[in-house]
Design a protein around this nucleic acid. Structure first.
Lengths: 204, 204, 204, 204
DNA sequence: AATGAATGAGATTTCATTCAT
DNA sequence: CATGAATGAAATCTCATTCAT
């Protein structure tokens, strides 16, 4: 029942912020990162430009809130589904499937996420934020692999490195799908990735 | 088979262009995409602002030349090494190893490449250029896989999809390494990826 | 001789106006003139933004009310004390002492006053208001000097010019104290100024 | 023969900067501090707005350069004249006369200087800059007084405090003259101030 | 009376591009 | 070829003011 909100935000304030973040994500997916202005976002949201700087400290603040959501939204989706599984092999498969599915069902989200790499500036902060999110997700995957080894479900392999590979493979597949959806068959790739990984980790 | 420049560029002209493109890549890697101005590049190259717009039609032209180089440089490196191998299994292993190695030895290049994936502006052109490069490399990998199947070196699998996965995995690993080099062991990941793929495609 | 408000203000209305003016002065002293927004003042007063524009025609109105108070508050303090003295030499000394004392006891007031001297916008009106207040106080001082001459307490000198000097000296001392309180000893300066002026005007 | 210039400025660059600073001072004197925009200054200088941010980091930078000049220009004028005098009593008189004269001959300068107090923001930096300039000038005056005491030209008094008073009196007189030139006779005030001070410090 | 979200005019700032030298 | 000062369009940011609740 803990209340957060460092500065007590009103309900309407929260709604507006959420609306603007969602619109920002949509606009970035449509126009690209470099080409998205506050005006574009305001117009897409049907509000005046001033509304954005009224609710966010500045453009950078809005962008970072959007990036936060870009990482958290798929996480919530995936983690919830993974945790409903008990066997680690089911968890692993669910992790891959759910991640791919979320992105297929939310292309704007996926596109904006991939684009967000270009938003990294020399101010290390932005990079750190993205890196932290990356690491967090990768660790979640790594834990599944280790738990599976501990339970005897999986054989012997370097869990940290395999987590890197699987996570990297998914991200790389999504990048391809963003750039060239016509020649990228995410669903089949998902199946084959699962198949390959399962064979790799089987205890035999 | 080298084609000469269609518009007769002087030698000094070519050198300048090359110098500027290289500096642009280095600057993007250092400052991020959104934070790199023509002045930044000019300063880093030790020339005046005007030099850039003298040698390139405009900023977009310079960026596209840089992106071209970002894709072509690792390609040359990798393809050369791959083609010295005759067995397809050697080619496949060489492809993965050489790609990882080139990027480890040219971090600026790698960083700029990852940043650029999503430097897409509303001119769909940029996205098409990147997608085309992606596809080209993936096709090269796919051909190795198919040739290996034809030669009986590899077993049965969907080559197009596996090419997607392997290519995606490498790209994803590089992305992780760009964001967080400390926790990303590229060399080990490379070995394990090769191991996993080889087991997956073994004909048995 | 107090005139009632020409437009019938309720008691609560008057209290609010006074509270806001006081807060404005405090905020200007804290944040500087150029850096004080209506929101800053509202926040410092613990009220909503709208309250200010509800009680004041606009920002300019609030600022002018505040400037009015900045001049009137020390005046009331000083004039009351001066008029309790009968000898003009006592009045003169009291004038200087009381002015310095009021400002030492109300640093925010003093700071805001110094800052406001030059808050002049292109509307010459603001400058006129400040000049009028200045002149009024100077005249008050001048009268003491003239009355002293008439009574034979003081010797021969140009009263108008000496009033300028004394008034200017006090204002200048306060400015220094505002800018650099550590190196400005107002109390000693006050004594020495009185001493110097008294010697200058002594009839001998 | 020491060269300064931390970053090697070209001659034309220096001229432009000087021109813009001068125009800024003139514009501030005319329009007031709060009412002066970069556009106003650019227009008055007959250049485009971009020129200003090309030659100055930002508006704040220009303002601080202008404030620097506001303090340094009268200083140079006054110090040069003072140092041509050998007797300390001549130096003191020259200090007061020259300060008043410079300001009478450069009203824009004087007006902008007085206005500059309103430019102080909560960022302590601006205040410190102004305070530092103030202190420096006051110390110069203090030294004249002490040297005169050491030479036996002047009698016994607290030199630091008298310097405060004389400096404050001049500044206060200038403030009055800025606000209300019609009723402020600077020339006569200057004479009477000298007279009063000389009597105060005479050794008898 | 009071609130505070929203507006929009006007300011500052950035920067690709031009052009006289 | 090269320079770098200048431009001006377009972006971000600020904030007094309005207004529905």
């Amino acid at each position: 029942m803990a209340t957060r909100a460092p500065k007590k935000k009103s309900l309407i304030e929260e709604l507006r912020r959420k609306q603007i973040v969602d619109t920002a994500i949509r606009t970035i997916a449509t126009r690209g990162f470099a080409n998205t202005t506050l005006n574009n976002i305001a117009e897409a949201a049907g509000v005046s430009t001033g509304v954005i700087t009224y609710h966010f400290r500045n453009k950078n603040d809005l962008i970072e809130q959007s990036i936060k959501k870009l990482f958290e939204a798929p996480n919530e989706y995936v983690i919830g589904r993974v945790e409903r599984q008990s066997a680690q092999s089911d968890r692993l498969r669910t992790y891959i499937e759910a991640t791919i599915r979320f992105n297929m069902e939310n292309r704007d989200h996926c596109v904006a996420l991939i684009y967000s790499f270009s938003s990294i500036t020399s101010q290390a902060h932005r990079q750190q934020v993205i890196a932290k999110h990356h690491t967090k997700i990768r660790r979640f995957l790594e834990k599944i692999l280790r738990d599976g080894q501990a339970a005897g479900e999986f054989g012997k392999f370097d869990a940290a490195v395999l987590a890197q590979i699987v996570f990297g493979a998914i991200e790389g597949l999504l990048t391809q799908w963003v750039l060239d959806p016509a020649t990228t068959d995410l669903a089949r790739a998902s199946k084959q990735l699962i198949d390959m990984v399962e064979r790799h980790i089987s205890p035999s």
